[in-house]
């Protein structure tokens, strides 16, 4: 359930409070997979070369090593520009995007055979983000973009954290920060803040701060404000499906079709088209399912570097359906 290009799905944060088994450092079925977390990331001396390299690598959201290096380089840029809230916010966004991608890869690793690699990556990048977060709290504590980016970072790095109490606190704090941010600037972060807020409101149990009715309102407003955001579109369609409004959901999914696929976070676009296709299947709308599948196939054919998120079988799970041989 991918979100958008800079933010981590709040839904995963709501599940964090029960992920009690994923403490860092434990053994897994591939005991040396932590070594796969290493990547070469030489840091240019020149400020402008560094900046251009950081900008370029941050667009490679399909490649965890490039994205990890982008996070590292943006960490350096943020240290070099400690007085600039804009640089801190941009850096924190890239780091959050990287954490989000690692979390997604972990989610798709059904039996956690690469868990040491994912843990190592999260352990490496989280301190970079925390340093930036601390600076932003001093530099621009109440700026909407600062509030939003800090909340989204916290949701991302705690998503796989073993400590339920901490994750619950983060969820509560994130709701407050995101409400404040969006009250001051509704479409902050391209609608991603409202999206994250909507997910928290809709998904959290009410006894821990959830408010499903409010969540429906928030995502509806986000859909109206940020109609070009594929994550917003797809989550709005999901909520409408859950609320038993399939026609509204289908109409919303159709708005994915004209979105451009030549720029921006193409990995996110591919992921949202996949989820949209699957949601259309759940709605039993075969023609819409095909349209979304075709759009995704065209995107993947034009960009072979993008990840298809295909299931790999391991430990008697995953892979294709063994009876039909088909992907599912």
């Amino acid at each position: 359930m991918r979100n958008n290009n800079l933010l981590y799905p709040a839904l995963l944060a709501t599940s964090a409070y029960l992920i009690c088994g994923m403490a860092y450092g434990q053994t897994s079925r591939i005991p040396d997979s932590a070594s796969d977390a290493h990547y070469d990331c030489p840091i240019p001396d020149s400020g402008e070369v560094l900046r251009q390299k950081a900008l370029g690598l941050a667009t490679a959201t399909y490649d965890r090593n490039k994205l990890g290096c982008a996070a590292d380089l943006w960490g350096v840029l943020a240290r070099q520009a400690e007085a600039s809230p804009e640089v801190q916010i941009q850096a924190l966004g890239v780091i959050t995007r990287y954490l989000s991608e690692v979390n997604t890869l972990w989610d798709l690793d059904l039996y956690g055979i690469h868990a040491p690699e994912w843990s190592a990556r999260l352990q490496h990048a989280t301190p970079l983000g925390k340093a930036i977060e601390a600076r932003l709290e001093k530099l621009a504590p109440d700026l909407p973009a600062s509030l939003a980016s800090r909340a989204l970072f916290d949701l991302a790095w705690t998503a796989k954290q073993a400590d339920t109490a901490a994750a619950l606190k983060v969820s509560g704090d994130a709701v407050r920060q995101l409400k404040l941010a969006t009250s001051r600037e509704k479409a902050v972060q391209g609608g991603n803040a409202m999206l994250a807020l909507a997910k928290l409101e809709y998904e959290l149990p009410e006894f821990s701060g959830g408010d499903p009715a409010r969540g429906v309102d928030t995502i509806t407003e986000a859909f109206q404000l940020a109609a070009g955001n594929p994550g917003v579109i797809r989550y709005f369609a999901y909520v409408q499906t859950q609320e038993n409004h399939p026609d509204v959901a289908a109409r919303a999914l159709k708005t994915l079709l004209p979105l451009p696929t030549t720029q921006g976070d193409l990995q996110q676009m591919a992921d949202e088209l996949l989820a949209g296709r699957d949601l259309a299947q759940r709605l039993q709308d075969k023609s819409l399912q095909k349209l979304l599948a075709d759009k995704r196939d065209t995107l993947l054919a034009a960009h072979h570097e993008l990840l298809t998120r295909a299931h790999t079988a391991a430990n008697l799970h995953g892979g294709v359906d063994p009876i039909t041989g088909k992907e599912y």
């Binding site: 009690c20 690793d109 039996y111 956690g112």
Partner: peptide
């Protein structure tokens, strides 16, 4: 106490 390998799907079983 849960003794499933870390990251395994059953590691989340409380």
């Amino acid at each position: 106490a849960n003794f499933a390998p870390a990251g395994a799907i059953t590691a989340t079983a409380p």
